[in-house]
Design a protein around this nucleic acid. Structure first.
Lengths: 364, 364
DNA sequence: ATTAGCACTCGAAAGGCGAGAGTGCCAACA
DNA sequence: TGTTGGCACTCTCGCCTTTCGAGTGCTAAT
């Protein structure tokens, strides 16, 4: 791939900036005015023609302005765009919302996606890629002869409970016995270590003739699968309709349906790097067919207990990458600080914004 | 209001049915064929003209077919449409899904709205109008010197928990003392009965010099407010885009934004009647400006503990009222059976479908 | 009261036209 | 050699006109 002159870069950046702003193909004249390089529209036209040849730009039709190609966006994201720093108001706003959100019930993942969507004004989704979860503690609370409450504390420090009602009577002794037995033998193990054998032995040890053990074990399994199954939450699909590229209802419908289905945004294979890395996937770089002409910006955060969470934002390729990346990065850092175990930078501090993308060759 | 001939009713019904099916203005010829009354298109034209005069129909423009007015739909819903019974497959499908859904975590409200949306293929929302909730049981589980778990069982039989971590150490005795104290004095009371006075006395009784009581009380308050605050869950907004009347992206956007905001669908004033009543609000009968040209079908179910839940479906006025009402009714009955305390009819049984609407005078 | 016939109306789709934005190229220039 | 003004050209978009057809309203006959 041939090198690219400095002036071309400036022009390319100007085209992308302008196109992001207006959503209209941008012409030579406009660039001559906005990017203050001392040269005339004619010169710029020559440069533009070359940028088209190189594959960074394209024209919708012969006599229209230029529009960035995915490759153009890629160049822009990797090298050209100014890494936005958020204003003080913005950072304060985000922190304030974060504090407020996380205080509410810890349906965190819903809140995170909603927050991301509100901040960026694009549809957003949050997901956790929970790794192996184990039970840290197991308690059973006796309510009355037919009722007890299971309480399970997981290795990721979330607590789950379930109310169990029985058609038969159980005495308090039995519950206590079961409680301590489960607390002893079901802690520290992963889901697939809960075997019928284990359940059986517990049952015998507790002198449990009524099969309570299996009910309880079922709950343990349910909680563990549930917690180690990655869950997704999508918010603000409707914001898609604000974007001119989705004026076509069919197009919008397709993408929205895909998203509502908890769309799998990530290229499954690669593992995400460090916390403060932001990944950008542009148009055809996406694996999902439905996303081939949209872009996705993803940030990753430390959700504690070796769990990583992801926040993603979906929009047209003509997305405001700079602003979105900055916001997501900051949001992710904030979440890591609150949820993660590690040594996070103090609040309000800007992390260096590292943006990575698909390392596909530039071919189209 | 003058009476309306029998044949007119049949014609009106035919118009609405056909329009619901095709979304296109329906002409005299089409009716002559579908509704098998032995008369010619010309006769039907005369009748149609009168129906227009009476306000049941209108024409988009002079030489187009007829389209029902809200008043026409109202007549259709109240008297004309055949109360659909669901097929056996459909009822089985719903029951199956219900059983499955409710087994998963009891984020029931989300599941209910999602299910309603899937069933009807319209956007749906579920809400609970929780009444005064009290605490039934209060437990504190000691984990370690700095950690304990609060477990609260509410009068509506849901159980909430919270993990509390302290910068200071607490001994197990203290926790036990607090647990039994709270279990004694915080049960059976509503949120506003938790006064600083009460907290203080608990604090003193427990010999709690570290203010643990207020932390715990804060949780109690949080849970109670949270549970008695009505919450809404909206699903399937995107299905709106499948409807031809929402091909205009702006229109779609407006309504979707409104819905996503947890739109207040109900006319606030009136209390909902019995469980198995389905309410239909047509176009301008809606209070919210955003819904003035859409329709809403609402069913109510018994969510236990004197709590009523609502399931609503939103669509164009040209909505398939019959099918939607039948499905929602059945769904609501199923939910009542599972969640409610009372004497519900057995599974699979069809309840009589009672449809009520706005009792506004027929004026436009 | 119903029906067949017919002129009429109006919107949707198809074609034509002009304006304007933007290009590509060329010749002149530093 | 790179830059610039000039100019003819291209293509879309919006606007107007025309055509077509579905469906009506009215009238006269049954």
């Amino acid at each position: 791939m041939s090198t690219i002159s400095d002036r071309k870069k400036k022009i390319l950046a100007a085209v992308v900036d302008e196109y992001i702003r207006t959503a209209e193909p941008v012409g030579s004249k406009a660039i001559a005015q906005t990017a203050h390089l001392g040269c005339s529209p004619a010169t710029i036209r020559n440069e533009l023609a070359e940028l088209v040849n190189m594959g960074y730009l394209e024209q919708p039709h012969t006599s229209a302005g230029r529009v960035p190609t995915p490759m153009g966006y890629r160049m822009y994201v990797n090298e050209l765009m100014d890494r936005q720093k958020l204003s003080l108001e913005e950072t304060e706003d985000i922190n304030r919302r974060l504090n407020q959100k996380l205080q509410e019930l810890d349906d965190t993942i819903d809140n995170v996606s909603r927050l991301a969507s509100q901040l960026t004004d694009y549809p957003a989704l949050a997901l956790t890629t929970q790794s192996a979860v184990t039970i840290k503690r197991f308690d059973i609370i006796y309510v009355d002869a037919n009722t007890f409450i299971l309480v399970v504390m997981l290795s990721n420090n979330s607590v789950r409970n379930k109310l169990v009602r029985l058609p038969i009577s159980v005495d308090q002794k039995m519950i206590q016995r079961l409680s301590s037995l489960f607390n002893a033998s079901f802690t520290g193990i992963t889901e697939d270590q809960i075997t019928p054998l284990l359940i059986n032995s517990t049952e015998r040890a507790a002198d449990d003739s009524m099969g309570l053990s299996s009910v309880i074990a079922a709950f343990a399994i349910e909680v563990l699968t549930d917690s180690s199954t990655p869950t997704a939450s999508v918010s603000g699909e409707n914001r898609l309709l604000g974007q001119p590229e989705f004026r076509d209802p069919d197009k919008a419908h397709r993408l929205m349906s895909y998203l509502s289905g908890g769309g799998h945004i990530l290229p499954a294979d690669d593992s995400f790097g460090g916390t403060d890395e932001v990944r950008v996937l542009i148009g055809p770089e996406n694996v999902a067919e439905e996303l081939k002409d949209s872009s996705v910006v993803i940030a990753s955060y430390d959700a504690g207990d070796n769990t990583r969470g992801l926040i993603g934002v979906v929009g047209p390729t003509r997305m405001d990458y700079s602003a979105v990346a900055a916001k997501l990065s900051f949001l992710a850092a904030g979440l890591s600080r609150r949820l993660g175990g590690g040594e996070a930078p103090p609040e309000g501090m800007h992390n260096k914004l590292i943006i990575k993308g698909d390392n596909s060759d530039g071919s189209r």
